Computed example of a mutant assay.
Amino acid sequence: METARDDLLLICVNYRKPVETARFVSSAREQTLNSALHVIVVDNSPPDGEGGVPEAVRDDPHVTTIAPGKNLGYFGGAAVALDIHRGSEPAVLAPSIRTLNSGVDQNPYMRVRPDAWRIRLNSRIFSIYPVDAVYQGLSWIKHRSLDGVAKERPATTAGFATKIYAPHGSFIALHRTYFEKGGTLDYGAFLFGEEIFVAETASRLGLTVLYEPGVVIEHTERSTAKGLWNRDISRYRRQASRYLARKFF
């Protein structure tokens, strides 16, 4: 089916979270925009129907739903949506991404480009499952502690837009110039590290990654990523870190 060419394309990748997907699509559709909006939802959920896109979303005439029949990963699913909507592809915008449990802003994800040694060190850490498990456990404790501190702080007003290195991967807005200048979503790993891939692609193309705190996205953190310390997830993390180290550093 050929979709209309709209000024603004929003791609949502669903994986077993029908309620949150429906809420996200509904919130997007309620926004007052100066450009026409079309939403594409890619359903990475299992073909047995568990956690699939709700009927209300599938029946929305302003939403295109795609069911690949398997989990294509974050950028893999988004790439399928782009192939269908080619010609209206949306530089790179990193909005304020607030976690619902603490209100912590997860952007800027990275203000500056990491040193090569850091990327290579991560690759080594993720190569050994027990070491990776300990590392992830310590990281979880660190972030939960920071969440607790953030809850005690008064809410802050939005600051000015600033140039950063990499956006948080839970929501990235890509302007059409990203694609017109040769940017793609052809990421060489299944999961993890998409933020650095976008950052490096934008840098290579001479594009700016802009953190815009005036735009706020609510994020239910890790709602689709249960069991982040199992061996399969560790393997994906290892593959991504090796790919990034080899490709960009």
Rank of each mutant, 00 (worst) to 15 (best):
D7W: 06
D7F: 01
L8R: 11
I11C: 11
N14A: 01
Y15F: 14
A22E: 15
F24P: 04
S27W: 13
A28Y: 01
E30G: 04
T32V: 09
H38L: 03
I40Y: 11
V53T: 15
V53P: 05
A56T: 13
R58S: 13
D59R: 15
D59E: 15
P61K: 06
H62T: 09
T65H: 07
N71F: 07
A79V: 00
V80E: 14
V80M: 15
V80A: 13
D83G: 15
I84Q: 13
H85Q: 12
H85Y: 12
A91V: 07
S96L: 06
R98V: 00
R98K: 14
S102D: 04
V104S: 06
D105H: 00
Q106A: 05
R113T: 07
P114S: 01
R118E: 13
L121M: 05
N122I: 03
S127G: 02
I128R: 01
P130S: 04
D132K: 08
Q136L: 08
K142G: 00
R144K: 11
D147F: 07
A150Y: 09
K151D: 09
E152K: 14
A155M: 02
T156I: 06
A158V: 07
I164A: 07
A166L: 04
H168L: 03
H168A: 03
F171K: 07
F171P: 05
G182V: 04
L185E: 06
D186E: 15
F190K: 12
G193A: 08
E195D: 14
I196S: 08
V198L: 12
A199W: 06
A199C: 12
E200T: 10
T201F: 05
A202F: 01
S203E: 12
G206P: 10
L210C: 08
T220R: 12
T220K: 07
S223G: 00
T224F: 05
W229F: 10
R237P: 02
R237H: 02
A240H: 03
R242T: 05
F248E: 02
